[in-house]
Design a protein around this nucleic acid. Sequence first.
DNA 1: TTTGATTGGTGCAATTTTGGCACTAATGAA
DNA 2: TTCATTAGTGCCAAAATTGCACCAATCAAA
Lengths: 315, 315
Amino acid sequence: MDMTSRLLMLLDVVEHGSFAGAAASRNIDRSVISKQISRLEDDLGVRLLNRTTRSFSLTAAGAEMIKKSRELRELLGQTVRLAENYHQEPRGVLKVTSSTIIAKRYLQPVINDFQKRFPQVEVELRLDDRVMDIVAEGFDLAFRVGEPKDSTLIARKIARNRMIILASPEFIDTYGMPKTIDELSLLPVANYTSTSLRVTTIKYLDEHGERIEKNMKSVFRANDGEILLLKALSGTAFVVMPAFIVGSEVADGHLVPILPNLKLLDYSAMYAVYPHRDLPVRTRLFLDAVREYIGKDIPIWESNIPNFERLYQGS
Amino acid sequence: MDMTSRLLMLLDVVEHGSFAGAAASRNIDRSVISKQISRLEDDLGVRLLNRTTRSFSLTAAGAEMIKKSRELRELLGQTVRLAENYHQEPRGVLKVTSSTIIAKRYLQPVINDFQKRFPQVEVELRLDDRVMDIVAEGFDLAFRVGEPKDSTLIARKIARNRMIILASPEFIDTYGMPKTIDELSLLPVANYTSTSLRVTTIKYLDEHGERIEKNMKSVFRANDGEILLLKALSGTAFVVMPAFIVGSEVADGHLVPILPNLKLLDYSAMYAVYPHRDLPVRTRLFLDAVREYIGKDIPIWESNIPNFERLYQGS
DNA sequence: TTTGATTGGTGCAATTTTGGCACTAATGAA
DNA sequence: TTCATTAGTGCCAAAATTGCACCAATCAAA
């Protein structure tokens, strides 16, 4: 290991706030960090950290080194990316983050096919609902519902995100088929709720084209589509959710669209998010593959719902 | 060894024009270079060099990597220098270049004392008359006669450079003591001649204050002061040389000043040359030590010549 | 206060990496 | 041709790195 790597290690330590944190993030032993940082101090001839047995603070010299380390990291990153532009075949590690449901339903099939075509690409998939700092964490690509505010990133719309209201036949037997939105709003509902996507009301246009937001009688909230579907299948709640969460349940008749004549408003679209810079070949190809899989105009998940083109269009 | 070091190695290879050259400059085996460059190409996934068994050319990717490698070298250098600013005690390697005679007579004593005071400093002394690119070769400090033209460097005047005309008593016995410059110009002379300093004429002011340049009957030229002194001591030539080349020969009576009433012009002064940037502590201290050793107003070598203050002043 | 978990640091053994030597094949100059 | 020099490879010894076990110090919770 040479000085540059040691400086980057120092940067890791400072950014993680501890030797242990840095070691964990790199999957190496704490002792390695300790030894390398000591070695760096010897080589530079300067103490970089003021140690107090369980923590540390930067010395003046350390602070300057951190600045330079950031520059080094950026420059080295640029250099590697530059080299990647010359790859004909995609290579390296593709780091992707998305919510669990998107990954499971729509990324995994693409990944399987992608790795058959390009065995040189390793894929690292991080399932997490939190919107993370993809630059700091080193992700190539993130899939999110809703446009992120961070303007240092590029957000590319992948697919629209239409809503659907579903209940099981048992639910309908129990509560009766609701004829109006007012009836529906009195029935128990299970909502999709996560940090990036909260579906707490039903948004629709009434017969005059007025935008209405109707509160629901929420009895269950979760950030996992399958859990919500299980809840709905149990007949104890109906669900209001984005169509991309629905699998074959509607086609199979286990869940039935409710109030299909309501004109529901689309929720925030699904976006692919990536850093504002030249994409490595692997990222570009993977993104293309995902877009192809999901479909250009009509997202693949809408085909899971028979006749969906005409549902919730206010007709 | 990691990517940064390998990129710097690549840079070395390209700047030296061959693997072998780079290996020689680093004192390592060619095979190491070969293996590390191959490894770098694997890691980047790009061929950097077009090889033809005995030479190579850069690929497009290689050329880009070279650019980035230069940036990396510069940034890493800055970083190390920044750290050096925090040294209280000087450390590291002090790389100095000068002509042989300057080093032998005036640097070596300073170095000996300096390393007693600061054992942590290693000294690397390159004796070379050529004016080299001290930045590219990584020198901290150069001592030269004559102000260098390169404005990216700082040239600091260390001492004036007065001339002296010397001959041995045997020479005077043989040719007689010359009474005038015209007589002298007919006698055989040995000149100091190197790439940085050529003493081919006698420059002086006549009784009217006119600047005169008198040709000499040169019979021997060398770029080593001691060789010239040996020539003069042999009695077969007189010498015209900068005073700093003279050791104890005049004080010992082995050589005698000739035409001391002539008003000789100073030759280009002696300069210390260093890169235009913050000096490491070791360099600053060493330069101070050299200046102190040589003396503020009257250079130490002038004390080797009795009464030199009044010689060659036109009185 | 005591207990327990976590911190950074150190010694030691196993593993990995590196560096040098000997050798090969290819090239260009004499 | 011959000869010197080039880059590259396999092998082995030497050096560096890593991870484990353990320690002392610290902080938080019981």
